[in-house]
Amino acid sequence: MPVERKELSDPLLGFTTDQRQSFLRSSNDSVMAWNVFRFCTALKGLGFLMILLVLGVVGVTYYAVVVTNYVPALIHAGGLDSLVSVGVLILFHALLVMLLWSYFSCVFTDPGGVPPNWRPTIDEEGGEADALNASEFSRLEPHSSGHKIRYCRKCGNFKPPRCHHCSVCGRCILKMDHHCVWVVNCVGALNYKYFLLFLFYTFLETTLVTLSLLPNFLVFFSDQEIHISPAALATTFMAFVLNLAFALSILGFLIMHISLVAANTTTIEAYEKRSSPKRCYDLGRMKNFQQVFGTDTVYWFLPAYTDEDKQRMPCLQGLEYPLRPDFDSEVS
Rank of each mutant, 00 (worst) to 15 (best):
P2S: 14
P2V: 15
E4N: 15
D10L: 01
G14S: 06
F15S: 15
F15C: 13
D18F: 10
Q19L: 11
F23H: 09
S26H: 11
V31Y: 09
N35R: 10
V36F: 12
F37D: 14
L46W: 06
M50H: 01
V54Y: 01
G56V: 00
V58L: 05
V65P: 05
V71S: 01
H76V: 13
S85W: 00
I90L: 14
I90P: 00
L95P: 00
V97D: 01
V97W: 11
W101F: 13
S102K: 01
S102I: 01
V107K: 02
F108K: 03
P115Y: 04
N117Q: 13
T121Q: 13
I122S: 08
G127M: 11
E128H: 09
A134G: 10
A134F: 04
F137I: 15
R139W: 06
K148R: 10
R150M: 06
C152R: 07
R153W: 02
K154D: 12
F158P: 10
K159L: 06
K159S: 11
P161A: 12
R162T: 01
R162Y: 05
H164K: 03
H164S: 06
C166Y: 00
C169M: 06
R171V: 07
I173G: 04
L174P: 07
K175R: 10
D177T: 05
D177R: 02
C186K: 02
G188Y: 01
L190V: 11
L190S: 09
L196C: 04
T202V: 13
F203C: 07
F217M: 14
E225G: 12
P230S: 02
F240Q: 06
L242Y: 15
L242S: 10
A245P: 02
A247M: 15
L254D: 05
I255L: 13
I255T: 12
M256E: 10
H257R: 05
I258M: 13
S259M: 09
A270E: 14
A270F: 15
A270Q: 14
R274D: 14
S276R: 12
D282W: 05
Q291V: 07
G294H: 08
T297H: 10
F301T: 03
P303V: 12
A304K: 03
P314F: 00
L316M: 03
Q317N: 08
R324V: 09
D326N: 05
F327E: 12
E330G: 06
S332N: 08
